[in-house]
């Protein structure tokens, strides 16, 4: 048996499952879909540590799983068009890190 089978590997879904959330009623992240449609790389789909953004070519929409957001702000800075409307979730909502 190789060592690799013994190490705690995990998918992003499994990783996010370890995080505590109390999502707000509506998304606190609103990308400008007009920019998303012409964005050649959809870089947010890659660098977001919580895998919040998912480009759906069928609907031509950048889907936002805001419930998983770490509120880190990387997408606000890393969006090439800087066109993600970004606010902190409402009072007492969003992510809670139990260890940090």
């Amino acid at each position: 048996m190789s060592m690799q089978q013994n190490i705690p590997t995990s998918t992003i879904e499994e990783k996010l499952f370890t995080v505590k959330y109390k999502p707000g009623p509506t998304s606190h992240l609103i990308p400008d879909q007009n920019d998303c449609q012409v964005c050649p790389t959809k870089a947010c789909n890659y660098f977001c540590p919580a895998n919040v953004y998912h480009w759906d070519p069928m609907q031509s929409l950048n889907l936002v799983a805001y419930e998983n957001c770490f509120e880190c702000g990387a997408c606000r800075l890393g969006c090439v068009y800087q066109s993600i409307e970004w606010v902190y979730p409402k009072d007492g909502h969003g992510v809670t890190f139990r260890h940090g």
Binding site: P8, K15, T18, L77, H99
Partner: peptide, 17 residues
């Protein structure tokens, strides 16, 4: 890294700028 974390249980993933 491998032998340092072998047998461990991941209890929290997080990210921050």
């Amino acid at each position: 890294i491998r032998p340092l974390i072998a047998g461990g249980e991941m209890v929290e993933y997080s990210g921050h700028m």
